[in-house]
Amino acid sequence: MAFLAKRCSGSNVGGASAAPRPVEEHTGNQRLHNDFTEVHSMDGRVMSSKIVVSDLARSLAFYKGLFGFKEAARLEFCDPDVTEVVLEDVSGARCFVLLQGDVMPVPSVPGWAPLVVQIDDIQAARDEAERSGYELAIEPISFGPVSILMVADPDGYLVEVVSGDPDGLDAAPAGQKIPHPIPQIHDRK
């Protein structure tokens, strides 16, 4: 850490006033550059997200029925008793884990789920959520080539549902600004 503190202090070794040259030092797998463009110890990839649920059957019905997820694996643990259900999306990627256990209660106000689901038709998703009796936290809104809605799962986690091409959205279209959905989410019952 002395290395980082020295680099961050702004001291100039040798009194030279020129900008420092990029220097790379290795400590195990960690790569440190004096311009701090890359600092990590290993190459990480997002594997999945997990949420704690109160009723696995009810949550499975939501994620399978609304988004077409499939149960890829079910893991039963003891001491303490915990069940994890690994879900895969329509591409076959294992993307989300539902976790239920007596020692891990669902948060009293779950809020935003760590899940964004891309679908083809935002209006069809909205209609299906409503038909199935799920709470719409926000109605569909559009921003450039992207439309989103927020739907609450059975425990109240808010799942962001997106249609369109989010990769095509580099910046807001000229002059277009829309209200962020956060106030609407906090105002819901």
Rank of each mutant, 00 (worst) to 15 (best):
A2E: 15
L4C: 06
K6M: 11
C8Q: 14
S9E: 08
G10M: 08
S11K: 11
G14Y: 12
A16N: 13
A18G: 08
A19D: 12
A19K: 12
A19F: 05
E24Y: 07
T27N: 09
N29L: 11
Q30E: 06
R31H: 13
N34A: 10
D35L: 04
E38Q: 13
D43L: 15
R45W: 03
R45S: 09
R45Q: 12
M47S: 13
M47W: 05
S49V: 14
S49I: 08
K50Y: 10
I51V: 15
V53G: 06
S54W: 00
S54A: 15
S54G: 15
A57S: 12
S59A: 11
S59D: 09
L60Q: 04
K64W: 00
G65N: 02
G65M: 02
G65T: 02
G65A: 00
F67K: 01
E71Q: 09
L75S: 01
C78D: 11
D79V: 05
E84W: 00
V85A: 05
V85G: 03
V86N: 00
V90P: 08
R94S: 12
C95M: 05
C95W: 00
F96C: 03
F96V: 04
L98Q: 05
Q100A: 13
D102S: 11
V106N: 01
P107D: 04
S108N: 04
V109C: 05
G111C: 07
P114A: 14
P114E: 15
Q118A: 08
Q118H: 10
Q118N: 09
D120Y: 00
D121L: 01
I122H: 03
A124R: 10
A125L: 03
E128T: 04
R131Q: 10
G133C: 05
Y134F: 14
E139N: 11
S142D: 10
F143A: 04
P145Q: 11
L149F: 05
V151T: 06
V151Y: 03
D153T: 07
D155L: 07
G156E: 09
V159E: 03
V159M: 04
V159G: 04
E160A: 08
P166Y: 02
D170Y: 09
D170S: 12
D170Q: 12
P173Q: 09
Q176E: 15
Q176L: 13
I178F: 07
H180A: 10
P181L: 03
I182D: 11
R188E: 04
